[in-house]
Design a protein around this nucleic acid. Structure first.
Lengths: 300, 300
DNA sequence: TTTATTGTTTCTTAACTTTATACAATTTAT
DNA sequence: ATAAATTGTATAAAGTTAAGAAACAATAAA
């Protein structure tokens, strides 16, 4: 028998001045009202009411109990509403993890925008590549590139960005323009191993899929150094268009093998569980899902 | 499922940092620990722990809940111990009701003695004859004379005092000394109707029981005026020896018809219930039960 | 008197709690 | 590297309890 319920019954009986009245208020049977009080009395080993069939009065212990009961019940109600409120209104701290480049270039502008709507919310952003244990680190939501293989996490697709192979015009002039995936084996391919699979580039041509194992003069766990190296003529890169788009527009990089299709890079939001999703995560998720595709340039 | 129990489980899990550890502490199964937490989470609609099989961390809501839970649990424990203590140690206010004469002459000296042992206890004494609703008046314990016919009350015999019929020597000289119960019909018999049955005096002689209906020049609901009147020669009285004892010793009153037996007046302590008897009532009961018979002059 | 209402008791059914057992995931030990 | 142990959870069976209906004794009002 739930003690808090019994305490509530006790308070109502004391207020109503009768078991029957309280029972009606609480929509329970008179029998249950009796049982709740008797339960409390037996647990406390104390008589709470002096009662006969027709008259009812609190004992001294009952008076003392009543006062404290009310306080406890109030506290519990206040507590639950506070917790529920935390669940309903975005507030507190939202800890986000994202790969450095997209985090800095695309997620953080979105965050800034988002935060304007929720004055009680603050954000902690961690820019880090590679696999991270979200739960250990207390991360609320992470941005992942490519697919995910942790079954305990929930992934939601946010957007996708086409991958392009490109190099600086200078490099292409010196080493020739590759026409076929196989040609890549003779080139310097700069590898960003933040995007899996590390050193395999996969193309879809007229003759089906072809996977090439590439090597090159530079590897990094971040896209930025790779992009820089390519702009400076160190080799070919395969990076999402949202990173190299401007370089291409402005002629610093030049796309090659456009006739081949490359499976686009998928961008996912990832979070620990789907039930009881906190308001801050839920609402940011909705926001970024609407916001990101426009900035990436493609729909999810 | 008792919410306070669940809250306790929650606190222990948070402290132990694992369900299994908390389960061992609380001597319940791991399964139950899980269920308690799940129950809370579903009631709050909020995830309290981020957890996988191997790692556990409080959510933001969990942190907030933990703090308040501990406070509530402490409050409840404190409250219960306070109530139980009230039940174990005599303290607070003991409300006693007694017939005026015995209350003033015998009970209140006992009370004074008794109170010395319990500095946290105070007493409210009501001297009143006749039937009183103990529960309505919030009386903890009453002293009753004669038998009781309220089934909802518990009576415990404290003492008995022999009743004697007597009058002033002056009265007896003027009206003659009654030898037989029947003689009383020609006398003025002063009636104290605080002691039932009101106007019938019952004697036990060699020839069996005899009940006489008496009348007289004065009736009162208290013994004192009756005794006074008798001392002043207004008639015969039948009062317990503890009231008229001294008057007899000092010759102000003279006993008659001593050869007849009169059922002694029984003195009872009466209280509302026998279960969960509060410490103050229980201990005073014990005290007065040991104390009173000596002062009344007869054993219970 | 009859009628209605009170707090309580008894009894039965429905609901819940608890345990035992199994399982998937993951870590530690050998 | 394989086996053993430990974690949180799921599921089903057993055991326990809570809930309401009906009946009851006590009392008050009509």
């Amino acid at each position: 028998m739930d003690k808090l319920t019994s305490m509530n019954v006790f308070v109502r009986v004391a207020k109503a001045g009768s078991f029957a009245g309280a029972a009606k208020d609480l929509d329970i049977s008179r029998a249950m009202a009796t049982k709740h009080i008797m339960q409390l009395e037996s647990e406390l080993n104390t008589r709470l009411f002096n009662r006969t069939t027709r008259s009812l009065s609190l004992t001294e212990a009952g008076e003392a109990y009543l006062e404290r009961c009310q306080q406890v019940l109030l506290d519990v109600a206040e507590m639950e509403s506070a917790i529920t409120h935390l669940q309903t209104e975005p507030r507190g701290t939202l800890k986000i993890l994202a790969p450095p480049v997209i985090g800095a270039s695309h997620i953080s502008p979105g965050l800034t925008e988002y935060l304007k709507n929720y004055p009680d919310l603050s954000v902690e952003m961690v820019l880090k590549g590679g696999q991270v244990d979200l739960i250990d680190e207390g991360v609320d939501l992470a941005i992942y590139l490519g697919q995910l293989n942790d079954t305990s996490l929930v992934a939601r697709k946010l957007a996708s960005s086409s991958l392009v192979v490109c190099a600086s015009p200078e490099y292409l002039k010196n080493h020739g323009i590759p026409q076929d995936p196989e040609d890549l084996e003779d080139h310097s391919c700069l590898i960003n191993w933040a995007i899996p699979p590390r050193n395999k580039w996969r193309f879809k041509g007229i003759l089906g899929e072809r996977t090439v194992t590439v090597t090159g003069r530079m590897q990094a766990n971040m896209a930025d150094p790779i992009r820089n190296a390519a702009v400076n003529g160190l080799g070919l890169i395969m990076l999402p268009r949202y990173i190299v788009g401007r370089d291409i527009e402005q002629g610093r990089l030049q796309v090659v093998m456009e006739q081949y299709g490359i499976a686009p890079l998928e961008i996912y939001a990832v979070y620990p569980h789907r039930k009881y999703l906190s308001a801050k995560v839920r609402s940011f998720l909705e926001f970024i899902q609407a916001w990101l595709p426009h900035r990436i340039g493609m729909n999810p």
